[in-house]
Computed example of a mutant assay.
Amino acid sequence: MDDRVVLVVAYDGVELLDVACVTSCLDIANRIGASPPYKVVLLSLGAHAVTCDSGLQLQAHDALERFNEPFDTLVVSGGLGHERAAADPRLVGHVRRLAALARRVTSACTGATVLAESGLLNGRRATTHWMYADRLAANYPEIQVDADPIYIRDGRVATSGGVTSALDLTLSFIEEDHGEALARGVAMGTVAYLQRPGGQSQMSMFVATRLSGDLLVRRIRDHIHSHLATDLTTPALARFAGVSERHLSRLFLTHVQSTPAQYVRGVRTEAAAQLLVSAEAPLAAVARQCGFGSTESLRQAFLDRYGVPPSTYRRQQAG
């Protein structure tokens, strides 16, 4: 069988992880039996070596401008140099040309900026690293930018969120190409989830909750995390904190960018997701342990956050 050719576009200021999350997954897929195997070709203008954000250099396999035959997948990498790359008409023109030859087109992280400049995201829903999403939306109003998901697939064009989100997207491609068993083998090889749903938030609650420097908010958050099954309504939290409900809401909107109720629901949903993956407890027990009043409340929270019911989420993770 012919190789499944994957072209990876790099430039000065590329993020090494954006490249490696894709290429390493495909290499592991080959080692454990991908058939046809993937053939990764790293391209740059003039086939020049590119300097990564970290200062390391990558030597391209071929020149971006020389490749001119149908292939499987085009990947535009991200990195701090993404805006300089998008301002280079030669690079953008060749990305646009190659996209017409590809079965599918994707970007890692801020590589979405290059796809946007090429016009390939016009009229589509897309994501990028959450730190750059507002800028992408402002500069390219034709795109429906959603900063939350770890990746979005819109037809044959896909975009991934911050850095390691490219790993999740690549796993989804491997599963599509070769089946769930092989994708699970790659996930095990990279010690990664198989697979985080594309709709999962880039800013996991367990990461985002540490951003606040307000001591009272941190105390309330710690209480929420350690008492999920108790009464965590806004009145109960206000009593615990010794403040009025209005002041509590103001604190959360300022330091957490959500209402107390929204925050509690998000933490409970994330905790339930962890339990569904790591334990075999029935849904009713998971709902009870995480503070949901019923399995229906748990189900609705999963649909809102992940786009799938909890039973489907568990099945996706367990394979």
Rank of each mutant, 00 (worst) to 15 (best):
M1D: 13
R4D: 04
V9D: 12
A10F: 01
L17C: 04
V19W: 02
C21A: 05
N30H: 01
R31T: 14
S35M: 08
P37D: 07
P37L: 09
K39C: 01
V50R: 06
T51A: 07
C52R: 05
C52M: 13
Q57V: 10
H61W: 03
A63I: 01
E65L: 05
R66F: 00
V75N: 01
L80S: 10
H82G: 00
V95R: 05
A100I: 02
R104C: 12
V105A: 04
G111K: 10
A116M: 08
A116K: 08
E117F: 06
E117R: 15
E117K: 15
S118L: 02
G119H: 08
G119C: 06
R125Q: 10
T127R: 06
M131A: 14
Y132K: 06
N139C: 08
D146W: 00
A147G: 02
P149E: 02
I150W: 06
Y151P: 00
R156H: 12
R156P: 00
V157R: 08
T159P: 09
T170E: 03
L171K: 10
S172A: 15
I174V: 13
E175R: 14
E176S: 15
R184F: 03
M188C: 01
T190K: 14
A192L: 00
G198I: 09
Q200V: 14
S201M: 10
S204C: 11
S212L: 05
S212H: 07
V217G: 09
R218W: 01
I220G: 13
T233K: 03
P235A: 13
A238W: 12
G242V: 07
E245G: 07
H247N: 11
S249V: 03
R250N: 12
T254V: 07
H255L: 03
H255Y: 15
T259L: 08
S278E: 15
A279W: 02
A281M: 15
A284F: 01
A285V: 14
R288F: 01
R288N: 11
C290P: 14
G291C: 06
F292G: 03
G293W: 03
S294A: 10
T295K: 06
S297A: 15
L298S: 03
Q300S: 13
G307I: 08
V308H: 05
P309W: 00
P310K: 06
Q317C: 02
A318Y: 00
